[in-house]
Design a protein around this nucleic acid. Structure first.
Lengths: 243, 243
DNA sequence: ACCACGCGGTACTGTTCAGTGTAGTATCCA
DNA sequence: TGGATACTACACTGAACAGTACCGCGTGGT
């Protein structure tokens, strides 16, 4: 287990351990959902961990259920006891990851609203954003989901809406506020948010999507790239001085 | 065959019909390369057409050699007479497409050098670029190559260097010239090129990579997006007036 | 202490697919 | 016209893999 290996922990994967498995008690009787048995919970967690890692490392088709079971130290039967089939396992994992991405987006943008020094806040935001987006498991997730967007179109849409899209909508909302306060000269907040985001992450993300992990820029290089994007943004959308 | 179907013609696929097949005549005798027989040429072209379409439609793993042979109206055996294996067929096709992308990049940037009205030339360039990059087969190619970047790392690097990368280097060179002529206020041409490209195509490309063909913006919408990117770029990197 | 149930192990089914072998046919070129 | 060669059709191998069946075990709840 080398240090450079993709670890699902990196994504803070905390997939719901109480799946909706069946419709909740349509007959009214107390539910014997396997969601209570600690054995089932342990197995389920192990499967999710293993599957997340493997899907990100190898993709959907090149990951077999046998591989997942082996890595989770669980029998294949147990996988199928917890997940109806491979597709549901995949979608559940992606949606779990998506939820954490959504949370990240909100936390990323929040500081902007009470920033005294707007340029400094934007620089900090940009650095965080670029660092997050170029992390290896995130890049792999992007590759994976876009590749499978034909097989799982709804899933791809949902991911995009809640992960990269969420950053843009939150950013646009913050920009709109700042514009209303007269602190940023912006007429179309949504466009400005897109420009900001892709000035900062566009080129690097594109490179990393194709060139392997080897081409990953160093930390200082990432900061330089982020700063360059912010500089261009501030030139295009100049902040008004504080009154 | 519906109008919305991906057609490999869209990419102007003209894969080399004279493959390097074997090392050229190591024994010195005149080579009987199958590259002369019109039967072989016809088969080879049909296979390339079919494989290009199918790989773009379904991806690498979900396209079987049987499918390719059937679509090319050729026996499977003929496929293997022309290409050593599925992987080589794939790489040869991608490299062929890459070559046309490379050519497109050069033709896209060329008009910039003799432009009288620089902002107008940039707007025109941006519209062309965005339109090209969001075309369905191109998007599918991006998905495909990034998805297979683990299986074909060299191929992915090569594609990126020669297709999206080529646009950036050509643009950077043109910007550097314009800056030297005092027509554009730029200190780092490479950074400026990246900013220009991703202001124009970033957000749209990202959306289209995930959301299916359904979410593809209309032509006028694309133009609006391109114009918005150019406007922001010109604000950040103002052109000096012509002397 | 009991026993139900989730578990591991293993073997199995059915299918898909890359790649090969072969024998006979059609096309090219000299 | 004849010899070479690429072609088709089809059968086949071997491997991988999703999903199922079954059995015996051992943990967890009561």
């Amino acid at each position: 287990m080398t240090g450079s290996e993709a670890n699902s922990d990196d994504l803070l994967v905390r997939v719901s351990l109480r799946p909706p498995h069946q419709a909740p008690t349509p007959d009214g009787s107390a539910r014997d959902d396997r969601s209570q048995d600690p054995r089932a919970l342990r197995s389920r967690a192990a499967i999710v961990q293993a599957a997340t890692t493997l899907f990100l490392e190898r993709g959907y088709v090149d990951t077999s259920v046998d591989d997942i079971a082996a890595r989770a130290a669980v029998s294949k039967r147990t996988v199928y006891n917890n997940f109806a089939d491979k597709e549901r396992l995949f979608t559940e994992i992606v949606l779990g990851v998506t939820a954490t991405a959504e949370q990240f987006a909100d936390e990323l943008i929040a500081p902007l609203r009470q920033a005294d020094d707007l340029p400094a806040a934007l620089r900090e935001l940009a650095r965080r954003h670029l660092a997050a987006v170029t992390r290896l498991p995130v890049v792999r997730l992007r590759r994976l989901i876009s590749a499978e967007s034909a097989r799982f179109p709804d899933l791809a849409r949902e991911y995009h809406r809640r992960a990269p899209g969420r950053v843009l909508t939150a950013l646009a909302a913050a920009f709109a506020d700042l514009a209303a306060q007269g602190r940023l000269r912006i007429h179309d907040a949504e466009t400005a948010a897109q420009h900001f985001a892709f000035l900062v992450v566009g080129a690097t993300l594109d490179r990393v999507m194709f060139e392997g992990e080897a081409a990953m820029p160093s930390g200082p290089e990432l900061d330089r790239l982020a700063d360059g994007g912010v500089e261009a943004f501030l030139a295009a959308y100049p902040p008004d001085e504080r009154p």
